[in-house]
Design a protein around this nucleic acid. Structure first.
Length: 431
RNA sequence: GGAGGGGUGGCAGAGCGGACGAAUGCGACGGUCUUGAAAACCGUUGAGGGGCAACUCUCCGGGGGUUCGAAUCCCCCCCCCUCCGCCA
């Protein structure tokens, strides 16, 4: 949620920043208009309340003195004011609710540093590590899609997953399941020097989804358990961001770093029919998320840190990749600036987005009412939130299997994974 | 799921229709005293909104209601505790 006060005092700058995303400014204009009338009516309401409060005090003292007639006259006067107060109070409640609802639909202001652009094609590649999609770098035995490798080695059983749960659900078996778990464990171990590990709930209340910006605008993308009005989380970002909801953090505890491995659930409603094969787009997957609460001045450095941490895992796994600076048109709703890491998977010949590292400025924290107090100072400030996928299993699994496939059909495991494989250093078909 | 008890400031805890944004204690902060510290004593100490300001409004788990006036009375909901039931 962007700050109404900025809309009030700095409208042109807010409008200009939002315009960089493309899309309409209609809601912003509506908020501005509502806010003006809200303050006007609120002022009038408070004025009347103040009178009612004063009169009521008088009634009290008159009654104590036994001056009943005078007290009753005052009561009548107050009653009349009360009717007017009720009208105005209903009006402010209504306008306030409408304002908040509009505000919840307006995306975050992009950072000045985010590149301009309308589509994903305008994203800026800031570096590339390894050969990427250079065809000459890849041998024929690496040009096999992971679903074929998975079947051949008996480590991926999509057919039976579909039998249990329908299309776009997956099942790993044997060394495939171990690989899935090992990737998560690696990501957790890799960040345990600075991040507290959390095992949050995977099913949450509506308010928890609103805090991150996943509701109300993107309800169709999430699984909703209607009977209990609970939502299956699309990412651990959702519960982790609400960990400090409605709390005031001590400045000294910032930045606060958290990480969690959870299942993530996505309906993928808008992308039916795309990437249906294999692991590229699935309804349920495991992911290790890293997240931080920060003071504003700490945010830039933390953003770089989260990106470096996510990227170093990809590097350690021996995957070729590129880092993109998302343009304003491709930026997620809640984000002010986002770096994506894309891995090149030679078997499917595609760049796969495996991590998205975002700085949300105070947008989520204002929704979630997460504040902090600087040591020795009065008052509170809205915190900043940042997060990124440390490692999202299915796409990394696919890229690892395709990249490290050997001429004999086996998959050679990257060294960082060896500790998790009970002495094995490769995956071979059993026969 | 059933029965009972409870949710008040950073914490503990009083208040149960009017002088209550809330006693008291603890904690924290500032001061006096002290070479320094402790103790003692004095003072300060919740959050948010509107207003240039004076000032003013809101918040006692959440939402409705009664009343001139609600932390206090009524209704609904949520959460916590104890017991019973069920259960990995």
């Amino acid at each position: 949620m962007i700050d109404v006060r900025r809309i009030r005092t700095d409208y042109d700058a807010v409008a200009a920043a939002l315009a960089r995303r493309g899309g309409s400014l209609e809601e912003l204009e509506q908020v501005r208009a509502l806010d003006v009338s809200l303050r006007e009516i609120t002022g009038e309401r408070d004025q009347i309340r103040s009178e009612v409060n004063a009169i009521s005090k008088e009634v009290g003292s008159l009654r104590r003195d036994g001056r009943t007639d005078e007290a009753e006259a005052k009561q009548a006067q107050s009653r009349a004011l009360g009717d007017r107060e009720k009208e105005l109070a209903d009006l402010t409640d209504d306008i306030g609710a409408r304002t908040r609802d509009l505000l919840l639909h307006i995306p975050n202001l992009p950072s000045d540093d985010a590149p301009d652009g309308a589509h994903a094609e305008d994203n800026v590649e800031i570096r590339r590590v390894g050969p990427g999609d250079d065809a000459s770098a890849w041998a024929d035995h690496q040009r096999v899609p992971h679903w074929d490798i998975g079947t051949e080695l008996g480590i991926l059983d999509l057919e039976r997953a579909v039998k249990m749960s329908g299309a776009m659900f997956t099942m790993f078996r044997g060394a495939g399941a171990t690989l899935s778990r090992a990737l998560c464990q690696l990501a957790l171990d890799h960040n345990s020097d600075a991040f507290e590990e959390v095992r949050p709930p995977t099913v949450v209340l509506t308010d928890t989804m609103i805090s991150t910006g996943h509701l109300p605008k993107f309800a169709d993308d999430a699984y909703h358990l209607e009977r209990d009005d609970l939502w299956a989380i699309p990412t651990a970002e959702v519960p982790l961001t609400s960990l400090a909801r409605d709390e005031i953090l001590e400045g000294a505890e910032l930045p606060m770093r958290l990480m969690a491995q959870t299942a993530c659930f996505r309906r993928e409603a808008g992308s039916a029919g795309r990437d249906t094969r294999g692991l590229l787009r699935v309804h349920e997957f495991d992911k290790v998320e890293i997240l931080a609460y920060a003071a504003p001045e700490q945010a830039a450095e933390l953003h770089a840190e989260l990106l470096a941490r996510a990227e170093s895992l990809i590097t350690a796994l021996g995957l070729t990749h590129r880092v993109l600076d998302l343009c304003t048109g491709d930026l997620g709703n809640s984000s002010a600036r986002t770096f994506d890491i894309e891995v090149y998977a030679p078997g499917v010949d595609q760049w796969l987005e495996v991590s998205s590292v975002s700085w949300f400025s105070d947008y989520q924290a204002r929704r979630a009412n997460i504040r902090f107090r600087r040591a020795g100072e009065k008052g509170t400030e809205i915190a900043h939130t940042l997060n990124g996928s440390a490692l999202a299993v299915p796409r990394v699994w696919a890229a690892v299997v395709e990249t490290h496939r050997q001429a004999d059909g086996s998959v050679k495991l990257p060294e960082v994974l060896h500790p998790y494989f009970r002495g094995n250093t490769e995956i071979r078909a059993k026969n």
